[in-house]
Design a protein around this nucleic acid. Structure first.
Lengths: 195, 195
DNA sequence: CAGCTTGCCTAAAAGTATTAGGCAGATGAC
DNA sequence: GTCATCTGCCTAATACTTTTAGGCAAGCTG
């Protein structure tokens, strides 16, 4: 039989495309086999199972996203960097909704630790060095930014903001403004030593 | 054969419990039938299909969450209300991770419009009346709060913040602080008329 | 070109989703 | 209380997805 040249990489890449077309939830070993015009069982020589395939797609998405973020941050600082990083996430999710969904896949701790996810946290932390925050407040701010980016993009993509009046582009810009203001006026911890 | 007394409501409730136990993704018509010790086909007299079941669970979760939010907001205002509302989401997600996941299910526009989702937006808007925001800025703030709550809770639940040093309780409190500060010092829109 | 590796195949078992049609247990009429 | 009806849960059947085991031949190695 003709050999198609399957590899884990090609399967992952094709799986990511499939996810963007039909949604990450519909990415199935069967669908992927159909796409390569190959029998389903053949894929199992290249990926362990369905979960493995999905994890690979998630790792691909996280890495692509981290690469874009690194590009966007190069040569920028302060609010400029903040807006650029934010746009990376939002634009990626809109261009690649399936990959974005994949990037939200819950990874087991070891896989997560070896993933590009850590680069995301590092870049956010680097960005925050442009603001004047104490060490623990930097961590809080990393988590806040992660929450806003993740939350906004997910809600917008899920249609949570649709058909209301101020367009989402305006809101997005105002939220960047607001975050920048907040980071430049970060409230001091309560005087309680547990702050 | 003994009649078990299946109804859409009982199936939905049991589905929600199942979701909390094994995860929303594992909520399947088959698993639910097993739980009632009933044949799979029997469920199809009560719910249209798997998608219908999942939607019902999502609507249940949204309604429960809205009820809790309404309770929490009663008699509170300002930062007190903000913290209370925030805790409702976070606590619900931790008590009922499966239902929380269900509440994130993407609903078609009509279903969403008829769901308790609209109550959530209304309550957030009511909360914001305790701050001094113009009408369009109120909408932006509603979206920001929704993003932070959704994003933070999802990331925390997904393990995104695990094993780092300042505990997530501290971060959560500081984020509420920060949001309160931000809402009391909301930056004016750019002088550009498109603000 | 002979031999070996391995990529893709067939075959098969198990689980899930869904529909069609049947029987019996509950419900209501008298 | 008996009968008729209704409807809830059943059996049966089809289709799809996942996964494992074992086979054959394409193509690299020498």
């Amino acid at each position: 039989m003709a050999r198609v040249g399957l590899t884990p990489e090609r399967l992952t890449e094709a799986g990511a495309e499939l996810a963007d077309e039909v949604g990450f939830d519909e990415v199935t070993v069967s669908a992927l086999a159909r796409r390569f015009d190959v029998k389903v069982a053949s894929l199992y020589s290249h990926v362990k199972n369905s979960q493995d395939l999905r994890t690979r797609i998630a790792l691909l998405a996280l890495a692509e996203l981290a690469d874009r973020a690194a590009d966007a941050l190069a040569g920028r600082a302060g609010k400029d960097a903040l807006g650029a990083l934010a746009d990376v996430y939002r634009d990626y999710a809109r261009e690649h909704p399936g990959r974005w969904a994949a990037a939200q896949l819950r990874l087991d701790p070891q896989t997560a630790a070896a993933s590009a996810g850590v680069r995301h946290a590092q870049m956010t932390r680097a960005l925050l060095r442009g603001y004047d925050l104490t060490e623990p407040d930097q961590t809080h701010a990393v988590r806040l930014l992660g929450s806003v980016f993740h939350g906004y993009v997910s809600l917008e993509l899920g249609g949570g903001f649709s058909h209301s009046d101020p367009g989402t582009d305006v809101t997005w810009a105002r939220i960047i403004d607001a975050l920048d203001t907040l980071l430049r006026n970060w409230p001091a911890p309560p005087t309680d030593p547990r702050g």
